[in-house]
Design a protein around this nucleic acid. Structure first.
Length: 423
RNA sequence: GGAUAGGUGGCUGAGUGGUUGAAAGCACCGGUCUUGAAAACCGGCGUGGGUUAACGCCCACCGGGGGUUCGAAUCCCUCCCUGUCCGCCA
């Protein structure tokens, strides 16, 4: 959501920033409608003032027993009410149109975000680690997992269809070990508070974080009023919705290990094999609620917290900054972490860390006490720390041996109950 | 799922149709008093929006939405939430 006042003050700046994301100029339409609404709104308010005034006089007239005067005043009120009804309805419908228009517009990027149309213009910031040279042809994770007898796509397909998997044995254990390792790192060393939020949320929560109204087709909806969360970003960020936070409580850092549910509409044919793109996957999410002046530094910090997981697992990765055309709906700046996958001979996204500025805060009405009588919107950030399924994929592929066994990374040994080699 | 009681300002809590945006207390802020503090006393103290150079004026808001009425915190409908009892259940 955008600040209509800021838009009134700097319409050209907004259009300029939206243009970087490939949008047509929006400000004029919005401001014209805004002016219309305010003008009509004034008429309504004046009518309301007249109605209120006359109504109070009616009370006084009745008290005095002046029925005639009361009747005359009632006529006045009736006239005012006609205006209120007619103009009021118009104002309301115009407001709804304006709200919908504003709600459908993406966040504006920071001025120094690299410009570009799509992911080809993303900028690599740095690399870490060196891809291992295998003296055999590395297999992909799906082949490895199936050969181990611990990754069953067929069984999952029979009950749930494509893009599901059944893990078992040591791979299930590995999945759990990864989540525990990530949570321990983020809570024990990086200051995030472990949180167990709802996995089912109302539409307004999704609206708050920006998945709605534009991306409904990506979500699973229950037969009731709930949606399954596509990421714990939704649950964690909405924890502060409709509240005024104590300034001293910021930054507030939360992490949660949750399943994520995505319909993957529109991605048919992509990553059809294996666990890269599933309808259901687990993720350890990081969310920070901060003061505006803290958000840029917090963003880098969060990126570091996510990177640390890969460093300790000794997985090669690189960090890219998304260009304006590749930014998500709510983000002002995003860093993606991509892990090396030998089978694909390339880096694949395993984490995405975004600074949303006050975009989500406005939609959620989440503020903090800046001063006496001055509440300001917080900034919100979210990032994966990390996607557990894709991390499991990366470990299988990077730690595979010629015989198809998987060496357990040192960092996970404390979580694997004595298992050092998966075979 | 059934029955029942509720949802009022940061908190507690009055208020069942007419200057009520809302008593009172607590908390908080300013002041008097005091060497200082406490106590006491005096004053202030909700949010959002419109308008104005400013003072100010106006509108909306008593869980959300809708309705009745000249007028609603107060009456009606509906949804959400909370408490209690029953049923069911991991």
């Amino acid at each position: 959501m955008h600040d209509i006042k800021a838009l009134r003050d700097n319409p050209d700046l907004f259009d300029q920033l939206w243009a970087k994301r490939g949008l047509e100029p929006q400000s004029k339409k919005i401001l014209d409608q805004d002016a219309l609404i305010r003008k009509a709104g004034q008429v309504v308010q004046e009518a309301e003032a007249a109605r209120n005034k006359s109504s109070k006089l009616i009370g006084a007239a009745m008290a005095k027993g002046d029925k005639e005067e009361a009747e005359r005043l009632k006529q006045e009120v009736a006239g005012a009410k006609n205006v209120i009804a007619a103009m009021g309805a118009q104002v309301e419908s115009e407001k709804t149109i304006l709200q919908d228009r504003l709600a459908g517009l993406p966040n504006v990027p920071f001025a120094d975000v690299p410009e570009g149309e799509d992911e080809d213009s993303n900028v690599e910031l740095h690399k870490h680690g060196t891809p291992k040279n295998f003296d055999f042809k590395p297999k992909d994770h799906a082949d490895l997992g199936e050969a181990l007898g611990m990754m069953d796509f067929e069984a999952a397909a029979k009950m749930s269809g494509a893009r599901f998997v059944v893990l078992s044995g040591a791979l299930s254990r590995l999945d759990r070990a990864l989540a525990a390792f990530m949570l321990d790192l983020q809570t024990g060393e990086n200051g995030y508070t472990e949180t167990t939020p709802p996995f089912l949320v109302w539409d307004k929560a999704l609206y708050g974080t920006g998945q709605l109204p534009k991306f409904e087709e990506d979500l699973y909806k229950t037969t009731g009023d709930h949606y399954l969360i596509p990421t714990a970003e939704v649950s964690l960020t909405n924890i502060v919705r409709e509240s005024i936070l104590d300034a001293d409580s910021l930054p507030r850092r939360m992490t949660a290990h949750t399943p994520c549910f995505r319909s993957e509409a529109g991605s048919a044919g992509r990553d059809t094999k294996g666990m890269i793109r599933q309808h259901q996957f687990n993720k350890v999410e990081l969310v920070s609620i901060v003061k505006p002046e803290q958000s840029e530094a917090e963003h880098k910090r969060m990126l570091g917290c996510a990177e640390e997981v890969l460093k300790r697992l000794k997985l090669p990765y690189r960090v890219v900054e998304l260009c304006t055309g590749d930014l998500g709906f709510g983000a002002r700046r995003t860093f993606d972490i991509e892990v090396w996958l030998p089978s694909q001979d390339t880096y694949r996204e395993i984490s995405s860390c975004s600074n949303c500025g006050d975009f989500q805060a406005r939609r959620m009405n989440a503020r903090y006490k800046y001063a006496e009588k001055d509440n300001r919107f917080v900034h919100t950030l979210n990032g994966s720390g990390l996607a557990v399924g894709r991390t499991l994929v990366a470990i299988l592929e990077n730690y595979q041996n010629a015989d198809g066994s998987i060496t357990v990374p040192d960092a996970l040994l404390p979580y694997m109950g004595g298992v050092t080699l998966i075979k």
